Amino acid sequence: MGSGQQSSSPGAGRRNTRRALVGIPAALMVLAVVCFASLALGARPISLETFIQAFTGFDPSNGDHAVVHSRIPRTVTGLLVGAALGVAGAAMQGVARNPLADPGILGVNAGAALAVVAGIFVFGVTQLSGYIWFAFAGAALAAVLVYGVASMGREGATPVKLALAGAALSAGLSSLMYSVLVTNQDTLEGFRYWQVGSVSGRGWDLIGQVAPFIAVGLVLTLFTGRILNNLSLGDDVARGLGQKVALSRAVTALGVVILCGAATAIAGPIAFVGLVIPHMVRALTGPDYRWILPYSMLLAPMLLVAADVVGRFVAPPGEIEAGITTAIIGAPVFIWLVRRRKAAGL
């Protein structure tokens, strides 16, 4: 990962900066439209007049007003989870210098899933509010284990060692989890609803539990743009620039763990958001993480909320959960991006 990954000239860097500055207001406008669609659209059609009245003169006895208000926590959950996954995915790709990095590479999803299974099987947890803390603890513990294993040896936590340790731990934890599920039908039934990945059915109580963690994770990770830019040049170059590589990776990894753990805890494992969005952003901003991170925070919730809206219309009168829809949308988009750009520079 050499310096050739950075802007090839000062002129190219200025063009990327101008493009990024212009794109932020446009991204905010599109995000606002997507949020409006999330509140207004669904299996039950709501007229624009009724939609406005639901906010200007809310009537609890009006079913349409109640439907609109019931979609607010669902939309807020999509915004929070999308922002967390987008920023975490971008930072994870930067700290691991791996263009295919996502919450699975650090064992986050596997750790969270195993902890939820343990909560159901051992402690009899049946409510989503109880899953949250097990999922968060499992995600954090798995990431710490991966980083600890990868840090062993003289070279420390290199990108290759992080990927190998994450893959090995994910395989082990998943095997242990499925060995429990196949022997206990009740645990399997309770786990299936969380595993599919969804932003529906999440109330303000759950949002209130998770939002502070996501806020802390976003603040911590958004300020690592310069760190990730230096790491993208290689460890030796980063050390030559005066950066403490091990500490930098640890700080960034902490932000990633907080974001992934919180997002996975409330919504379940949602694929492709943290993988696809950073690649889309690089097409607009170039390789500068000072732009990639904030753009990922805007575009990822756009994708997740839009996927949730699409899922409401695919199989009426039922719905397809957002975790399934993001995979359906994200897979072909990612293939197109890879074929178009050949190799994304990190």
Rank of each mutant, 00 (worst) to 15 (best):
A211E: 06
A211D: 12
T77Q: 04
V281M: 06
L346E: 07
R154H: 11
P316G: 01
R15N: 14
A343S: 08
N184Q: 06
T50W: 08
P316I: 01
T285P: 07
V216S: 02
A43C: 03
Y178D: 13
A163P: 06
R341F: 14
I207P: 11
D205S: 14
G225T: 05
K244P: 14
P60V: 01
G111S: 13
G63E: 12
M297K: 10
G330V: 02
V245I: 09
V146L: 05
A143Y: 07
N98T: 02
V67R: 00
G268S: 10
R312D: 07
V309A: 05
V87G: 09
A113Y: 15
V68P: 04
D308W: 00
C260M: 08
R341N: 11
L162N: 05
A84P: 00
D308F: 01
D102Y: 12
N230R: 06
R239A: 15
V144C: 12
P278N: 02
F123M: 02
T158P: 11
Q93V: 07
L31A: 05
L337A: 10
L128S: 13
L293E: 00
F51S: 00
K161F: 11
L164H: 03
G153N: 02
A37L: 12
R341Y: 11
L80E: 13
W133M: 08
M280G: 14
T221M: 00
G330S: 06
G201N: 02
W291H: 13
R19V: 07
A343P: 05
P287E: 04
I207M: 04
F191P: 14
N109C: 10
R15G: 08
S7H: 15
L141G: 09
A90S: 07
I320V: 09
F36C: 01
G23R: 09
G201F: 05
V338H: 10
G255V: 03
A43G: 12
V273T: 10
V196W: 10
I320S: 02
A157T: 07
A263Y: 08
W133L: 07
G172W: 14
V314H: 12
V108R: 12
A88E: 08
L337F: 00
A113I: 15
Q53L: 09
D288L: 06
G13N: 13
L169V: 04
M92T: 05
